[in-house]
């Protein structure tokens, strides 16, 4: 059985306007895949197609081996979703929010407790959602998305608007899901997040994929300078060729104790995106 996500030439048009243009992505089981792009690039539209909320104009998309236009209860019970809007019951407490979904999925009564402990919200189980901070709400939504032990987890901007500490907490939870073999499809416009978490990414701009692959490999591919940058203790920086001569110079500087830090000249994903599209990510 295919546990991944396959998309072939996905096109989506709204009122004659093309939102997605020939998207081709293959995501294997247990992979964390990041769809990166600025606001309005088509990320949420693609998630909606993959989860059967929208139908593509052209092309084929498969989720867990099933055409996304024909998803059934069986597929829905194997996916978890953290959407752009939280969709929590504000007047209910954390526990009751999860209990509802445990009942819907026919899970055992201890699942909400397990899920709350997993996201570090067990102490706040009796707190109503309206009293939670944004970070706590995000963790609760993640707990809800994971309560049925999904094979595929869709996360739409999971750390949007969170402070670094809360974002790190969410990253840890996502990484734990990968360890369990869950396939994670996340959208983000946070490049660092993508570099840190994702096995593969796609850079999406105006509905088209402009680059696809492992984030590290993509950055190395666009390392046109291919140099070594030495930051010295006296505050100066020197660029050295990435060859035996450069290596010798690095050795000498290190020997003399002059080096503060050594960097490569690889661009980050944002720079790659700018190079490819001529526009920034924000």
């Amino acid at each position: 059985m295919n546990n991944g996500i396959h998309m072939k030439n996905i096109v989506k048009e709204f009122g004659g306007h093309r939102i997605l243009n020939g998207i081709e992505i293959k995501i294997e089981k247990g992979e964390i895949f990041g769809l990166l792009g600025p606001s309005g690039a088509g990320k949420t539209t693609l998630i909606k197609i993959l989860t059967g909320q929208l139908t593509q104009t052209e092309g084929e998309a498969e989720l867990l081996g099933t055409d996304t236009r024909r998803l059934t209860d069986r597929e829905y019970s194997r996916i978890g979703m953290m959407l752009d809007n939280t969709g929590l019951y504000e007047r209910l407490n954390c526990y009751d929010n999860l209990l509802l979904f445990a009942r819907i999925y026919g899970l055992s009564g201890d699942k909400p407790q397990e899920a709350l402990k997993m996201v570090g919200l067990w102490e706040a189980k009796g707190q109503t959602v309206q009293k939670l901070s944004k970070g706590m709400k995000q963790r609760l939504v993640l707990a809800r998305a994971m309560i049925n032990g999904p094979d595929i987890l869709f996360l739409d901007e999971p750390t949007s608007g969170l402070d670094p500490a809360n974002a790190r907490g969410i990253h840890r939870l996502i990484q734990k899901q990968r360890e369990k073999g869950t396939t994670v499809f996340l959208t983000t416009h946070n490049m660092e997040e993508a570099e840190k978490l994702c096995d593969n990414i796609a850079l999406l701009c105006e509905g088209s994929i402009v680059e696809y692959g492992n984030p590290g490999e993509i950055c190395r591919r666009y390392n046109h300078q291919n140099k070594i940058c030495l930051s010295l203790k006296n505050g100066k920086q020197i660029l050295l060729e990435n060859d035996s001569n450069g290596a010798w110079q690095v050795y000498n500087c290190l020997k003399e104790g002059l080096v503060e830090a050594i960097h490569s000249t690889e661009p980050n994903l944002e720079t790659v995106f700018m190079e490819l599209t001529g526009r920034s990510f924000e």
Partner: peptide
């Protein structure tokens, strides 16, 4: 929407 996406 969340309920419907959870099989309801």
């Amino acid at each position: 929407r969340v309920l419907f996406l959870s099989n309801v």
